[in-house]
């Protein structure tokens, strides 16, 4: 029979099929879903996180690992109540209005997912109203905005203003990022945090939800 180690190893190597196969096998054997998640799937992903940080793994490999983990999660999910699902938190992410730069934000999404966050990726060109709608729908702990243009980063401010107007500002932490954005700009517009890259964004999110990364 496959061990938790085998499951973790399959996550690390990004072997989608194998992860599903072992997870199913474990479910059939009656192993507890939380054990499968914590000792197999997340254990593997934690190693991926460490290796990526140490620059031992490539971005597309991390992506495959995250996908493989998600494949296993899907199988165990029906077996446990939503509230028992070990999730570090939910993050709504989008590139602000008028801005089509997608890659940096998607990279942040991937790294957050690999850290155990549930990420709702809204896409690009998201108006303040779009963020508001998504916050109401998904009730995230954190909302992240990306902007790559000096012309569009002002829409981060507009979004924060709208969150205040809608009475949502106290319910979420707001983080911002993208090449022209800086810590001082984040402070100026009243955001809760700024991340210069995806790994920093992950640490920041862990800090904001009060958990250790």
């Amino acid at each position: 029979m496959s061990s938790f180690n085998d499951l973790a190893e399959s996550v690390i190597t990004g072997n989608f099929g194998k992860v599903k196969e072992i997870t199913q096998e474990m479910i059939d054997k009656g192993i507890g879903p939380l054990e499968i998640i914590n000792d197999g799937l997340i254990a593997g992903m934690n190693v991926v996180g460490v290796r990526f940080k140490a620059e031992d793994m490539f971005v597309p490999e991390v992506m495959m690992s995250a996908k493989a983990m998600a494949g296993g999660m899907e199988l165990v999910k029906p077996l446990i109540a939503d509230t028992d699902m070990p999730s570090v938190g939910t993050v709504v992410l989008g590139t602000v209005k008028g801005d089509l730069h997608d890659i940096g934000k998607s990279l942040v999404a991937m790294i957050l997912e690999s850290g155990g966050f549930k990420v709702v990726n809204l896409g690009t060109d998201i108006a303040p109203e779009g963020f508001v709608k998504a916050i109401r729908e998904h009730k995230p702990q954190i909302v992240g905005m990306s902007a790559l243009l000096t012309t569009t980063m002002l829409n981060m401010k507009a979004t924060i203003e709208l969150l205040k107007e809608e009475g949502l500002r106290d319910q979420v932490k707001v983080i911002v990022g993208g090449a022209p954005v800086s810590q001082s700009f984040a402070d100026e517009i009243g955001a809760d945090g700024y991340g210069s890259d995806a790994m920093v964004a992950k640490d920041l999110c862990f800090k904001l939800v009060g958990k250790a990364s």
Binding site: E55, M57, F58, V59, I103, G104, L107, D197, A198
Partner: peptide
Amino acid sequence: FMDMRSGVG
């Protein structure tokens, strides 16, 4: 291209 280890463009 991208530094596939760090994600820097």
